[in-house]
Simulated assay, not measured.
Amino acid sequence: MVSAALAPAALPPGMALSVERVSHGFVLQDELLPVLQDIALDIEPGEFVALLGPSGCGKSTLLRLIAGLEPPRGGRILADGLPITGPDPSRVVVFQDPTLYPWRTVWDNVALGLEARGILKSQRHRVDQALELVGLARFASALPHQLSGGMAQRAALARALVNDPRLLILDEPLGKLDSLTRLTMQGELVSLWQRAGFTALMVTHDIEEALFLATRVIVFSDRPARIVEELRVDRPYPRHRDDPELVRLRQRILERLGLGGSW
Rank of each mutant, 00 (worst) to 15 (best):
A130L: 08
V110D: 01
R126N: 13
G113T: 08
A116I: 07
N109S: 00
L120H: 15
Q123N: 15
G135S: 00
L136F: 03
L136E: 02
W103Y: 00
L100G: 08
L131K: 04
S122N: 15
L120R: 15
T99V: 11
A140M: 01
R117F: 13
Q129T: 10
H125W: 10
S122G: 15
N109C: 00
N109V: 00
A137M: 10
A140E: 01
P102I: 00
F95M: 11
W107Y: 06
R117G: 12
Q96E: 09
L120P: 15
A111V: 04
L133G: 01
L136S: 04
Q123E: 15
T99Y: 11
I119D: 09
L131W: 04
F139P: 10
V94Y: 08
Q96M: 10
G135T: 06
L131N: 01
F95P: 01
S122V: 13
F95W: 04
R117S: 14
E115L: 14
F139V: 08
G135P: 02
F95N: 04
V106N: 05
A111M: 03
L133F: 00
N109K: 00
V110L: 06
L112Q: 08
L100C: 06
D128E: 12
T105E: 00
D128N: 09
R124M: 14
T99M: 12
A111S: 05
G113Q: 08
V94S: 04
A116H: 11
E115Q: 15
P98F: 08
K121M: 09
G118H: 11
L100M: 05
E132T: 02
W107T: 01
D128V: 06
L133T: 03
L136K: 05
A140T: 05
L112R: 02
V127W: 01
V110W: 06
Q129H: 04
P102H: 02
L136H: 03
W103Q: 03
G118P: 12
P98Y: 08
D97R: 14
F95S: 07
Q123M: 14
E115C: 13
A116Q: 13
L100K: 08
G118K: 10
H125L: 10
V94R: 05
D97T: 13
N109W: 00
A116C: 05
D128W: 04
L133I: 04
